[in-house]
Design a protein around this nucleic acid. Structure first.
Lengths: 217, 217, 217, 217
DNA sequence: GATGAATGAGATTTCATTCAT
DNA sequence: TATGAATGAAATCTCATTCAT
């Protein structure tokens, strides 16, 4: 029943998806939907919660627990892109619908994002420690970078899905998730490394405010 | 009148925003809205086009023409974050509403995004030349990176706006735009430099001059 | 200005014809229409009155004053069919629109019909006298026959116009009006003659209740 | 529910009849009307079809199958006038509204009219054979006469209804239908007889066996 | 437990009509 | 005189939601 809701919300959007259609897609009668899930809002919330949890679970399950920070990020990204590629409707609901139809729903997605942000933040902290991190990273700066990273990943996920829609599906998806994750790593890891090394970009060029010398000009 | 529409669409969402409310906010009668803008769809399109153009104009105006690539990106980002911070409703409409309510609207935003993507792509090309770019960047890789960068910026803009809503406004905004742009530079510039230098991340660590791009194990 | 109204009412119908369109067709501004004719209802009334008068005038002008009754009917019918063929929009307004959009308008057409009915009634009276009419024709019977005759003519006019729309126009119209009038005469005149002769149809066959013998079996 | 629609369409006209009023008259809520009949157009179509069928059925049922042509016409007319007198709203919808509000509806009435016209045409053919018909009736002439006859009957039906509205109702209606049918027979039958006998009216008077029909001077 | 049948509230859109100039 | 600009009122249609069974 929630599956039907995910599908319909993704295809039609929150407002345009009618309870009639959801019930029909689910193969049950409308009053039954109201019996189990009290209202359209509740139904949408339930959908968001379930899909959020599934995405977070996929991400969490994908990371290799004891590995180095870069490998943990790499495997997490692979998990994320695989999941969004394999469940495009779910991703569409979370990424597009849930954030555009009122505060209550947006908050639920924000919570999911916060969870992922925490995962990324921890990762950065671990990486800093591994790197014998010289510079102390301001909490606000780390949060900003985490959000940037997440946003980049989301954007890439959407872009990859759009490309997949046009082309074939199936086996390709898997390799696509890997490629996308690689692009993310190439884009993000060097910047993270620099940051942890204490280097900062300024209008005058990259400078090393703290830590061992050796900054790139 | 378009201002009222921007405000209402941002606060309520496309579907939930009623023409009644828009007219009321605009301080005119509903038939007048229909006289000038033929339908709700047309009104939304007009809003999207105006706000898109404004955002692109702000970005374009902000970038320093003859400067080095990093400064160009830096100034462009400042322009972008300033505009999104000063016009949060406009940004909400473009980023959240316009992309989730039907192909026609999504296409208009996609066009704007493509324009920005081209700006970023050009920038990457220029930076590569400046850096005496060793590696040849595959077109698809550049496109991916551009999308990642844009997504990161969008995400940061949203994040910054959300923080601003809670805190004070005014002067802080300006510095906030600068801070956000700095975060973006720190996050993105080093990664771009690496990439242009031909370095690639692989599961085994960073390597220089690996084979054809996209062939990660 | 009334011409524009006739055209628009005929093409669109009373309700679907908007004052905007009428004003545009007339080549004047809407307030001007309201200045001369106070409201849509008044405008429609004015149209009906003018077209009614024109039709009655055409009919009246067509009859040969001193001729025998059958020639008077014949010439009147020719006038009627010519007018309706030459002014199809006018006829459409009178025959179709005016009778279907509320009592007030229907009354105006009823008045025109009454005028024509009187013309026919007089004619029947004259014919009766000419024929040395034996039977006294009940007033109600004459009225009924007059309405039947008018209805038949109206139906033929519509039918003829519909055929003309499909085929060519111009010269043909005139001969068509003659043909149609001839059909009417062939259909109606014999019946009228019988009636005036006092013959009546009964379930048992035609009987001569009054007057000279010689009824057709 | 269709009854309510018939009543309202007849009283107000197609455009002026609001779905609100129809629902109220039917004693149900508006959405229910839309549930059973999808739109105002569909509702009107359904009404036209039902009332058309009822009228044709009444006419068909009334005619005595094996009787002579004049009796068949007589009984058919009685059936027609009885039905229109007993269901004045139905008749108003068919005769006035359905023909003036757009092609789709007009076509449905035209189909009904065609059915009746065929009945009349057959009748004329039968009468011609019975009368040992001398003259060959041109197809176009027969069609014209059939339309004239139908128009006369329609006009009489309307006239009779208008008179009934003013006067009393009940028993009188029945005798009225008979009277009206008698008027029609008196008006039409003699003319038909003449026509079948080959007689034609010309501006010079009635002549027998003139040349090809339609060639009046 | 499950549903067919029904509705209140509200959406977009149109149009006859009027001022201020 | 003539009109550009504006609106009150009402139309069709949709949908989340609920009883009676």
């Amino acid at each position: 029943m929630l599956d039907a809701a995910v599908l319909t919300f993704a295809r039609r959007g929150y407002r345009a998806a009618s309870m009639d259609e959801i019930a029909e897609v689910a193969g049950v009668s409308k009053p039954l939907v109201y019996l189990y899930l009290n209202s359209k809002e509740d139904l949408f919330s339930a959908v968001i919660r379930r899909e959020s949890a599934a995405l977070v679970a996929a991400l969490t399950a994908a990371v290799e627990p004891g590995a180095a920070a870069d490998r943990r990020l790499w495997s997490g990204l692979k998990g994320f892109f695989s999941h969004t590629a394999e469940h495009p409707d779910s991703w569409a609901v979370l990424h597009q619908q849930a954030r555009t139809h009122g505060e209550p729903f947006a908050r639920e997605v924000a919570a999911m994002r916060a969870e992922i942000a925490e995962f990324v933040t921890d990762l950065i902290g671990a990486a800093a420690k591994e790197a014998g991190c010289a510079g102390e990273l301001a909490e606000r700066e780390v949060a900003g970078v985490a959000h940037a990273l997440i946003g980049a990943a989301e954007s890439l996920a959407e872009w990859a899905n759009a490309r997949t829609d046009e082309g074939a599906s199936g086996e390709w998806e898997h390799s696509s998730a890997k490629d996308t994750a690689a692009t993310m790593m190439n884009f993000a890891w060097a910047g993270l490394g620099r940051l942890m090394g204490g280097a900062r970009w300024t209008p005058g060029g990259l400078v090393d405010r703290v830590g061992p010398p050796g900054a790139v000009g």
